[in-house]
Amino acid sequence: MISIKEEIAVPSPPAHVWEVISNPADVVSCISGAELGAAHDDGSFDGTLVVRFGAVRVRFAARVILELAADEREGRLSARGRDGRRATRFAADATFRVVPGDGPGRARVIVSGEITITGKLAALVESGAGTVITRMTTEFSDQLVQRCAGVDLHPARAVGGGGQWQCPG
């Protein structure tokens, strides 16, 4: 099991940061290699993520559930999925909360969660998986800061709306 505990300082107002981080399409655009798929009636949606473990690329597909409490600016995300070869499964549960930062017009995003990888890949990547996730978390933090600052991270690609999310891969 890999634990995530991260505090991201974002130089944008909490309300705006919440607006970004509560939108799956915006969140996915901050994750390199991620794509959103179909949305389901129960509020969940599909997603895919290509992860590089060492020199090997692995594509995961998952069903994602996102629960939001706008008043508290708090969200809970859970994802269950497996890779295309069905040899590895993962389960991720995370909570995130947007709180005021250390000055006006600044926010902090507090993220904590756990990821469990089981199956063939678990043996293949050993402790490197934790490092990979730490690296992805850092990349996500950087991208989130830029997204909140209004930078279009992937200007050449269209982001879909409505029930179907189409995000850059």
Partner: peptide
């Protein structure tokens, strides 16, 4: 690769 997940 195994211990640090490096793409090398």
């Amino acid at each position: 690769r195994l211990l640090h997940g490096e793409d090398v």
